[in-house]
Design a protein around this nucleic acid. Structure first.
Lengths: 202, 202
DNA sequence: AGGTTCGTTGTACAGCCTGTACAGCTTGCT
DNA sequence: AGCAAGCTGTACAGGCTGTACAACGAACCT
């Protein structure tokens, strides 16, 4: 009730550094090829040079750690560039940017995101947290498609639903993961998806 | 070394029945909404009315059980209809059948397949077993696309790689899973994918 | 009938994991 | 000085996979 008499500058900083180190270790561990050491709270603690109890103190649980990691990925993965996509005047151009932002995001931490997906059905609560992000993508897709309809003029309701689901599917991680091969660089995947989207929606 | 003096008719039958019951229980448990009881060897044993040790005796390990389940799904999911697709004289018709067979397969045990995917990065060995099946799909796609090229005549090498990856992606489970909503029946997904494939590859 | 084999079961154990409880320590802050 | 927040160690409960081993019973062959 009473306002905190504390400021806690240095302590907060130090704690945040620890949080960051823990998240970095978790990210690194999830990205390591098929988890030579299996992903676990103890491994994360060991790699970040911190006691296991500290991880629990900071994140509460495995699910908490994974959710925090998810948020940190979104911040660092270039999602802020999404605003640029919506600022485009041409609807097709906006969709192209939209696609590009997501392929870039999936690429930025591909192995980690792939591993995170595995925890989906292991922990239903975490699945919900991941589902929310997917809903954002759907909302964005809907806005862009509305804009496209106004620009070109085609009000079929059923086709709108198809278009929305298609764009969400095309910008999803599994699609990127299936198309990004060693012989096809990320920007080439972007181009491929953009062409496919024009054919699918046009 | 010496030839088995045993025939073991009834015993084999009885054991096979047990195997089937165990697999059915595993399938049912994986399909149960977000695993109210968590999936485990003990739960599988309990549901199939068998001792936990029996499951180990029959399948060796969790990975063995999952692989056997994967095979049983392929047998029961209509994969034998794949031959019909390759028997089509028209290349486009063959591709349409190819797509239809896979959407039907994914639909047949959607929840189970979705759950199986989660074990992919949990157990790298099992991931390999699942990857082999995906390679079959790729081989089939390649054959059909070769046929399509001979029929329409377009020998671009780079476009061939794109086409192959696209068809594999379109016939994959995540794509189906993203497109099959309560408002879109499985056969409608098939139609949507067939149209999309024609636009993507044509 | 008698002995063999195979499927099955029970118990016990090792090892790893998450998560909780709790006491104690260090360090920054007022 | 004294409080609070972050950090740590230990111990424990409970769950999981996987292995070892002994035992039982029924199908099986001769």
């Amino acid at each position: 009730m009473t306002p905190r008499p504390y400021r806690m500058q240095r302590r907060r900083e130090s704690a945040d550094e620890n949080r960051a180190r823990i998240l970095a270790a978790a990210r690194e561990l999830l990205a390591s090829p098929q988890g030579s050491p299996r992903f676990s709270m103890e491994e994360v603690a060991r790699r970040s040079g911190v006691a296991r109890m500290t991880v629990y103190y900071q994140f509460g649980s495995l699910r908490g750690l994974l959710e925090a990691l998810l948020d940190s990925l979104a911040s660092a993965g270039g999602m802020q560039h999404l605003a640029e996509a919506f600022r485009q005047s041409d609807a097709w151009e906006a969709i192209d940017r939209f696609i590009a932002v997501f392929t870039q995001f999936w690429e930025s931490d591909r192995l980690v995101i792939r591993a995170l997906g595995a925890f989906t059905s292991l922990d239903p609560d975490f699945a919900g947290a991941l589902g929310e992000r997917s809903d954002w993508r759907r909302k964005g897709a809907r806005v862009l498609l509305d804009r496209l309809v106004k620009q070109t003029g085609r009000p079929e309701r059923k086709e709108m639903r198809d278009a929305e689901d298609l764009l969400v599917m095309l910008t999803g991680f599994p699609t990127y993961d299936a198309l990004a091969t060693p012989k096809r660089r990320p920007d080439q995947v972007t181009g491929l998806l953009q062409r496919l989207a024009r054919r699918a929606l046009g």
